[in-house]
Design a protein around this nucleic acid. Sequence first.
DNA 1: GATTAGCACTCGCCGGGTCAGAGTGCTAAC
DNA 2: GTTAGCACTCTGACCCGGCGAGTGCTAATC
Lengths: 350, 350
Amino acid sequence: MIMDDRKKRILQAIIDDYIDKAEPIGSRTIARKYELGLSSATIRNEMADLEEMGYLAQPHTSAGRVPSDKGYRLYVDKLMPTHDLNREEIRELNSATEDRVYELSQLLRHATAVLSNFTKYTSMAVTPKLRSSTIKAIQVVPIEAGKALVIVVNNAGIVKNSLIKVSEQATSEMLGRITNLLNDKLAGLTFEQADTERIKTLAREIGVTGDILTPILNGTAECMYQMGDHEMYVEGSTNILGHPEFKDMDKARQFLSLLDEKTSICKALSDSARPVGITVRIGSENELCSIRDCSLVTVNYNVADTMVGTIGIIGPTRMEYSKVISSIGYMKKLVCEEINRLLGHEHESV
Amino acid sequence: MIMDDRKKRILQAIIDDYIDKAEPIGSRTIARKYELGLSSATIRNEMADLEEMGYLAQPHTSAGRVPSDKGYRLYVDKLMPTHDLNREEIRELNSATEDRVYELSQLLRHATAVLSNFTKYTSMAVTPKLRSSTIKAIQVVPIEAGKALVIVVNNAGIVKNSLIKVSEQATSEMLGRITNLLNDKLAGLTFEQADTERIKTLAREIGVTGDILTPILNGTAECMYQMGDHEMYVEGSTNILGHPEFKDMDKARQFLSLLDEKTSICKALSDSARPVGITVRIGSENELCSIRDCSLVTVNYNVADTMVGTIGIIGPTRMEYSKVISSIGYMKKLVCEEINRLLGHEHESV
DNA sequence: GATTAGCACTCGCCGGGTCAGAGTGCTAAC
DNA sequence: GTTAGCACTCTGACCCGGCGAGTGCTAATC
C-alpha cells in the first residue's frame, strides 16, 4: 500500500486532534472538523489502511484510532506543523535568565523550571561532563591562621574550591611556592588524568614536606573530585499528573519513582542526545524500558566546545512535539549564551 | 468528663492501630488485639466518650473511629511509645554522611534523601540563613591574564566565589592591595550590612581607580548576594503516593504542587521550627492552610551558633510519629557533626 | 454501679445487569 | 472511487440489592 498525500493529511489531522483531545479519534470527527472534502466513510477506509500500515492503532474494536509510535515518528519527521514562538512565549522562556544567575547549576535549574512550566511536561538537565576538561590553574589561598582554600579552575573557567586546615606555621610565601609547584605538575592535564592516584604519586615525588603539603594535596584531590561529579536537575515532575495518560495512579507512581532514580535518567538523557541538534525519542525508541510509553526530547549544550551537557523534556508519547521542540531549541540557545556570559567568554564584564 | 488512665490506654491502642492500618478502628479490634481485659462493649462506651471529648472522630455513623488532631496531639505529647533506633536503622541513617560530602548543600541533599527513604514520607531542608553572619575575609586571586576570582569567606568558613574579568594590566600586586583595602572596609560586617548599596558607597569613597576596581566590587557584591541566598531541598515527594490518604489523585496533586512552591514550604519550615528541639505540627496546627491535613516535624540545626537552618519531614497526620521524631533527631546530630567537620571546626583535617 | 451479651440498625462497598453512545466494518447504491 | 445506511461491538455510567463491619441501646450479669 502506498502512503499518498491524502493519507498523510488524514494522519496529520488524527494526530493533531489526538494530541489535543487524548481520546481515540473517530472518522466522523475528522470529516467534520478538518475540511478534507471527504465523507466519514472514506476516511474510515483510509484509517483502516493506515492501521494496516502500522501508523494507527485501535484500542479495541469499535473505538476510534490512536497514533502508534510509527505514526508519531512520521508526524515528527514530516507532518508536524512548525511552532513559531510568539512574543509572549519568548518572554516567558527568557525569564530563565532574567534573575541573577551566578552558577551553572543555578542556570540549569532555572532553565528546567521554565521549560517544564512552559510545556507542562517534565524537564531535566545534566551538568556537563568536566572530567575531560583540563586544569587551567590551581591556587592555594590563606584565609586565616591555620586555614586555607584550595582553588582549581578548568579551561572553561569553572571553579571548584575546598577549605583545608594547614599548619599554623605555613606562611603565604610557602603556600605560593606550593601553588607554583602544583601548577607545574598538574596544569594542562585533564581531570581524568589528575586522579587521586596521580596526586598521591606527586606527594611521593616531592617527598613529604612536613604536614603542610598533605592537606593541600587532599584539598586538590577534593576539587578534582567535585569537578568530575555531575549533577542533574529535574523540574515539573508533577506536571505529568495533569495528563490523562497518567490518571492511573500506578502509572504515575512508576513514572515519578523513575525520575527519582537519577542515574538511569541521567544515562537516558546522555544516551539519547545526538552530538548536535534536537533529538526526539518516541515511545519504544527509548532504550530505557520504563519510559517506553513516553517521549524524550533532548538537546546538547556546549561549554567551551569540549564539555557537553544535556537538556531534556519528557512527556507522554502524545506530546505537543512542535511546541516542545521549538521551546527546547530556544532554551538551548539561551543557556549557551548565558554560560558564555557566566564564564567570561564574552566581552561584557559581570 | 475525666481523662482517666483507661481512656488513655484505649486511645493509644486506637492510634497505634490506626497509624498502622489507616482504616477506622472498631471496638472489637481493640478488644481482641490489645489485652486490656475489657469487652468490646465497654470499649465502645469509652470510645463514645473519647469522641465526645474530641480525641476521636467518626467518618460516618456505624464506622469505626479515627483519631482527631487533638487525639494525635495527646498521643505525641504523652502516649506515644519511644522508638529506639536499632543498629540496622542507625546504619541506614548514617549512610547520609558516608559518601564523600564536600558542601553543605550536598550534605543536606543526602540527609533529606536518606530521611525520606527511611521514613517513607517527604523530607525537606533549607540551608542556613547566612545574611546575619559576618565577613571574615575577602580575597582577589588572579587566575590568568584578564581574569580573577573574588572569594568571600564568612565567620563559619563558608566560601563563595565569583569569576570576574579584570584589566589585562592588573598585576597581582595591585590585586593584593585591593584585597587589603576590601578587608579593611568590609571584614567584620554582616552580609546584611554589606549590601550592594554599601559597596557602591565604598566605590565612591575610594574614588574610581580606573577599570580595575569596578569588576572586583561587582564580584564582591555577587558573592554577598550568593551568601544571602538560601536554598531548599525536597526529597521523596513521591513517597506520599504510597499512603492511602493520597490515593485520591487530586489530593496527591495538590500536595505535590505545594512542594513545588518552594517559598511557602520554606516559610512553613522556618516558622514551624522552634529554636531548639524537635517541633511537631499536627494537621490544623499548621499555619499553611494547604497542609492542614498533614503533619510537619521540624528541627533546627546550627552552623557556628548564629546561623540556623531547618530540616523537616512532612506526611499525613496519620504518621509514625515516634519513628519520624527519633530519626530526625538523629539526623540533626549527624548533620551538625558533619558541618563542623566540613568547615574545619574539628581537629581532623579533611 | 460497672461491665457485658444481644440485637436492631446504619452505612459503605462490591458485583451484576441494563442502557445509551460512539464508532466500526460491510454492503449496496451513486 | 466515494458515500449512505445499517447491523454490530465495546465501553462507561448508572442503578440496585446483598454483605459485612461496626455502632448504640437495652437488659442481664458481676
